[in-house]
Nucleic acid binder design. Structure first.
Lengths: 143, 143
DNA sequence: ATAGTAAAAGACCTTTTTGTCTTTTATAAA
DNA sequence: TTTATAAAAGACAAAAAGGTCTTTTACTAT
């Protein structure tokens, strides 16, 4: 469904939120280890998240990553759009650049409702709602 | 939704079927041109389709590609599985290797019905049913 | 037969994605 | 104020996806 970068981003953010809920601020090392992502690749991804203001970071001893609790929840779709772009979520499955009700590709009519369901799911589901569904035993479920 | 190879494969096969319906056997040059794919890349893809027995080919003057009319219709899912593999269509969106009702990822319950709808669509829709929905004016809709 | 045509095959190249390594900068605790 | 720590930055490398070019093989129409 998603590429690696998006997958790591989602898992990493959920891990951060999950730890934040326990009043902890995890660092990259810990995050990468627990969500099974390459450490430095994960670092780059989280830098991007910080630049986008999805999360905050703290340098130095005791530092790490955390969500601003005063901000609204972060829907998955924002992460997907940032990393994979609009085509991933609104593009034509057949590859037409303009594909709509007036100019439908051979898949259009059947595909549209599915695409809408996907959009709905990823707009409603947030990092916070997903963190709440996660297990305490977060470790190594990706093997 | 799909990678380039799958997209070209689907479009190419539909083009072939569409021309076959007019009693024509298109060659690679014509196919690539009309579906807006790179010629030699398209050639490789169609070779794969021939090896899988999805289509037949004919070398020499007047040659090209065609479907065996005595065979059943070709569902999209077979092409997708061949090129992108099972994960594309049955993988966990969150990246778990085992994700099921007993061991659900935070997206599982909401994602499963969508995945099933996608599977249903691509199992029911065939190259032949899509060719039947295509326009005579096949050319250059991909710009 | 043979000449022309079109697919098959395979070597090669480019771009994107994924991943690694090293250096720099900021911060907090001692 | 120094030291340890952790994020930021950026150069580099490997692998995968996407694409090109050339040669070989097979076939068909003449």
């Amino acid at each position: 469904m998603f590429n690696k970068e998006t997958e790591y981003a989602i898992r990493g953010l959920i891990y951060i939120q999950f730890q934040n809920d326990l009043n902890l601020i995890p660092n990259i090392n810990e995050i990468a280890l627990n969500i099974d992502a390459p450490q430095h690749f994960m670092a780059k991804i989280l830098q991007k998240m910080v630049r986008q203001n999805f999360i905050n970071s703290q340098k130095g001893k005791g530092g790490g990553f955390y969500f601003d609790k005063t901000k609204p929840e972060l829907p998955l779709i924002e992460i997907i759009l940032l990393i994979e772009g609009d085509k991933k979520v609104n593009g034509c499955a057949y590859g037409l650049n303009k594909c709509d009700n007036n100019n439908p590709c051979p898949l259009h009519n059947q595909y549209v409702p599915i695409r809408e369901a996907i959009n709905k799911l990823f707009s409603e589901e947030t990092i916070q709602s997903m963190a709440a569904k996660s297990h305490i035993d977060f470790k190594a479920p990706f093997v």
